[in-house]
Write a protein that binds this DNA or RNA. Structure first.
Length: 612
DNA sequence: GCGAGCTGTCATGGC
DNA sequence: GCGCCATGACAGCTC
């Protein structure tokens, strides 16, 4: 039978073993681990350089495994550990507790934290989440001191998790949800990924398929059609998240066919995880080419393919944020949507914990980057972050939808440029009036590269760019609106953006045309003026020619009369006679009386003709 | 401070 | 009826 190591059983177990040995704990006595890990134990122990002398299988014979939440004061312990020069920086309860044990040499505390069996059976995930992690919003909004306080509170016996049935599979799944999902004080997924990736060379060894709890099996079955051939090692090397880990089908070969990537709904999740392996922190590696086919996935496709357990959180997230589950899910789907794809932090950096993907009491978010999450709901306003810039875990509540605009460094690749310090999108910003420029003072956004519509879209987390919204054909635009779950406010804003954008372009074109018309008219004026001057010159020339012709005619007339003689040989008086030219070229000498009378007779006739 | 120019937006009408 | 486009009018911003 093929043995497959589950997603949670990698270097983490080895790490636990090493650290437990450092603090003098015996794993078999002090640490209760899930039964599926039992098969790994004998494989892992030789890998431990400081194998406890009495190390043996830590697992009891019972199917279930029980452990209490690990609840040290992490922040305080960090300082202690650092002071001791312990290279293992705790970022989770487990880490913190272990390091606390290392720092204080107190293994008794571990006994109090671990393995108080019957009273600490892990039960319902949601309840355990609330019990072990407290209010995630409070955890998010609290600084380190508050976090310590919260963890201290959580360390109280009341933090024990009720038993939901005692089934091993259920307890396992609950363990995942209760200790690996929830709030800031719980075991983050990134911690899990780090544990997995810290020993990648051992992570391929497996456990029996039967050891995988039914919870995972059911999950795997639910996505079997879309999750065939997933390479677990590849998944781990890609910092597989909990979601994908849960989607791994135990009976397949765990080989991921690259050609099938586009058809696998959970594939984008790989692209969106924070990198826990520093060797894979290269953004290029963490940013696979965007698969356009993912855009074509309908909501049904996604929802069918994704596990409902995960989407319970997404749905709650959507309720909290006002966005549809699909939008939330698209956070994980579209690299362009701006998730911190290349949030490949140093795994030993404390800031890493701020980038870990977590699921809070039903709400999906990023450990410190809920803001990123919410911002990344929209494709608007993204920019490449500076690698060393991390979003601070600012106080932000999902329900209140407060956006800390200090974290405007969204991991997007769009044409918009974001700068930190943008105004927080409040209800005022959501209710911008039409006269946006009148309200521009409310924006007070130092980033003038963002247009108002872009700022609006960013505030409402429109998952499309303004350019897309404006330039998209109407059919595509309508289909886009129908394909995405958008609130009425979002749809209204999108339509306003489209209307204003098109009108803006129209106004620009109109002004261009108007300017062109003005320029053309000016050109016409110049041309007409030139023509006028030419006609004037031509008129002058014609007048001069007429004068010359008239002078020549006068001279010729005078010359002709000088040579003319009547029958008696006398000169013809020009005042009494006139020269009349006929059509056949003959010239007649006609008395002026006849010419004048003839003109008088023709003139009325001509007038009559004109009148007729 | 004032005015010109530019730009975005709205309202309106035509297609 | 809807959407797009064109355009006048208005207001804000910059120089």
């Amino acid at each position: 039978m093929k043995l497959l190591k589950p997603w949670w059983a990698g270097g983490g177990l080895l790490q636990l073993t090493i650290l437990l040995s450092l603090v003098g704990l015996r794993v078999d006595q002090d640490l209760c681990l899930p039964p599926p890990a039992a098969a790994l134990w004998e494989e892992l122990l030789p890998l431990c350089p400081t194998r406890p002398a009495s190390a043996s299988s830590p697992f009891s014979a019972s199917e279930g495994w029980e452990r209490t939440p690990l609840l040290p004061a992490k922040g305080r312990l960090l300082h202690e550990v650092r002071a001791l020069g312990v290279p293992f920086i705790p970022r989770t309860r487990v880490d913190a507790w272990l390091v606390h044990s290392v720092a204080t040499g107190n293994a008794d505390g571990a006994h109090g934290l671990l393995g108080t069996a019957a009273s600490s059976t892990v039960g319902d995930g949601g309840q355990s989440a609330s019990a072990g992690g407290g209010d995630p919003r409070a955890a998010h909004s609290s600084p380190l001191a508050a976090e310590e306080e919260e963890e201290e509170k959580a360390a109280e016996p009341t933090a024990q998790v009720p038993d939901a049935g005692g089934c091993g599979s259920q307890t396992f799944s609950v363990y995942i949800q209760s200790h690996l999902h929830w709030s800031d004080t719980a075991f983050s997924l990134e911690d899990l990924f780090q544990l997995l990736s810290s020993q990648p060379e051992h992570s391929l060894e497996g456990i029996s398929v039967e050891d995988i709890p039914p919870f995972l099996s059911s999950v795997c079955e639910s996505v079997n059609s879309s999750a065939q051939n997933i390479n677990l090692s590849q998944a781990i090397s890609h910092d597989v998240n909990l979601h994908e880990a849960m989607l791994l089908y135990p009976n397949n070969t765990f080989r991921r066919d690259p050609s099938a990537r586009s058809s696998q709904a959970q594939e984008p999740f790989l692209q969106l995880n924070s990198h826990t392996n520093p060797e894979q922190a290269t953004p290029a590696m963490s940013l696979p080419p965007f698969d356009n086919q993912m855009r074509n996935l309908t909501s049904q496709d996604l929802l069918y393919d994704l596990d409902s357990n995960i989407f319970d959180g997404i749905n709650l997230m959507s309720l909290a944020t006002g966005f549809s589950p699909l939008e939330v899910s698209q956070l994980f789907e579209e690299p362009d949507s701006g998730l911190p794809l290349n949030s490949s932090y140093n795994s030993t950096s404390l800031t890493n914990s701020n980038s870990s993907y977590r699921i809070y009491d039903g709400t999906v978010g990023y450990h410190s980057d809920l803001q990123s999450l919410c911002h990344d709901l929209g494709a608007v306003g993204g920019c490449y972050p500076e690698p060393h810039k991390h979003c601070h875990m600012d106080h932000r509540t999902i329900a209140g939808f407060h956006v800390s605009l200090e974290c405007q460094q969204v991991f997007h690749d769009h044409t918009y440029h974001l700068q930190s310090g943008a105004s927080e999108p409040t209800s005022e910003s959501f209710a911008w009036s039409g006269k946006s420029q009148k309200t521009s003072g409310c924006l007070d956004n130092p980033d003038r590269n963002l247009s108002r519509d872009e700022q609006r879209a960013k505030a409402l987390h429109i998952p499309f760019s303004v350019d897309e919204i404006v330039r998209m054909p109407v059919d595509s635009f309508n289909s886009m609106l129908s394909r995405h779950y958008l609130t009425d406010l979002q749809v209204s804003l999108i339509r306003d953006i489209r209307r204003r954008g098109k009108n803006k372009v129209a106004a620009q074109n109109c002004r261009k045309r108007k300017l062109d018309i003005i320029l053309n008219l000016e050109d016409d004026i110049c041309n007409l003026q030139a023509k006028k001057e030419a006609l004037k010159n031509e008129q002058t020339q014609c007048s001069k020619a007429i004068d010359i012709m008239r002078q020549k005619l006068h001279g010729l007339h005078h010359d002709v009369f000088n040579r003319l003689r009547d029958d008696q040989g006398r000169p013809v008086n020009p005042s009494q006679y006139a020269l009349q030219y006929s059509h056949d070229g003959t010239v007649l000498i006609v008395p002026k009386e006849l010419v004048s009378s003839g003109h008088k007779k023709e003139a009325p006739k001509g007038k009559r003709e004109r009148r007729n």
